[in-house]
Amino acid sequence: MRLLEAASEHQEGAPAKQLAREAGLALPTAYHLLRTLTHEGYLRREKGMLVLGEAAEQLSSSGAQQNRRGMIDEALAHWRDTIGVPVYFAVYREGEIEVVAVADTPGNPAVTEWADFRETGHAHAIGQCLLSQLDDGQRRDHLDRHPVQSITRYSVRDNQSFMRRLNGMGRMKPVVERQEYALGSVCAAIPITAGNTAATMAISVPSCQADRLLPAALRLQDEIGRLLGTLAFSISI
């Protein structure tokens, strides 16, 4: 590990003797370890210099991804505790709705995924918010693969009705859904766009507390505005 740390400090590479010296290792030991690291793909030789190899870069990428996931989890936990509601983070990736993280508590539980979120985007605020950020062709492609179906008595009934609803939504405005996915729950979602990626933060409350929904959503939107740079960086997880 000390040899890899030393190598990471030299983007253009460094000779074995220099890496051994910086790692504080005897030269014979360093030579043996460097041969092993090169064989395993953690280092590679370029014009007599040793640089980080593909295996080390993958390891670094995995660590960065974990850091981004940790940032998302911390942000959601903060907003859950500050606003007092379950908080969700989702993205639209490779043609599918993906709920990346959820923060809730036993006293304020998240909505149970009783019907696959990917297939029922028309019925919940997360899906409606993500699909509202897509262009017409992308929406139609999604509905061809996941056609509208009645989930509760409050759900939209067919693709045409749902497309009209999406077209009528204000761009980048909160999306509110009332018992369309789960009876007894109302939800709101805030759109977030980072580059070409559609994402959303959402909240839910019991329908008997529906008057809390919009104030909580507006507060979340304000919080997101303050941390948009951090959140946009984390969307790539």
Rank of each mutant, 00 (worst) to 15 (best):
A6P: 04
A7P: 09
E9F: 06
E9L: 15
H10A: 12
H10S: 13
Q11T: 07
P15F: 09
A16W: 00
A16H: 01
A16Q: 08
K17R: 10
E22W: 05
A26E: 14
A30P: 02
H32A: 14
T36P: 00
T38W: 03
Y42T: 05
Y42D: 06
M49D: 03
L52R: 02
G53Q: 11
L59H: 02
S60V: 01
Q66Y: 01
Q66M: 07
N67F: 05
G70K: 10
D73I: 09
L76Y: 12
A77G: 00
W79Y: 10
T82W: 10
I83W: 06
V87K: 03
Y92E: 06
E94Q: 14
G95A: 06
G95I: 08
E96D: 13
E96L: 08
I97R: 09
I97C: 07
I97H: 07
E98I: 09
N108E: 14
V111L: 12
T112E: 11
E113W: 03
F117W: 10
R118Q: 14
T120N: 09
G121I: 05
G121Q: 05
H122K: 04
A123G: 04
A123F: 03
A123L: 03
L130H: 08
Q133I: 11
G137M: 08
I151Y: 02
R153T: 13
Y154G: 06
V156D: 01
R157G: 01
Q160E: 14
M163Q: 15
N167T: 07
G170N: 13
R171M: 11
A182T: 12
L183A: 06
L183M: 10
L183S: 13
S185Y: 14
A188T: 04
A189R: 08
I190K: 00
T193P: 00
N196C: 01
N196T: 09
A199L: 13
A202K: 02
P206S: 14
P206I: 03
A210D: 15
D211E: 15
L213Q: 11
L214D: 10
P215Q: 04
L218Q: 12
G225W: 00
G225Y: 04
G225D: 07
R226C: 06
L228S: 07
G229W: 03
G229K: 06
A232W: 00
F233E: 15
S236G: 11
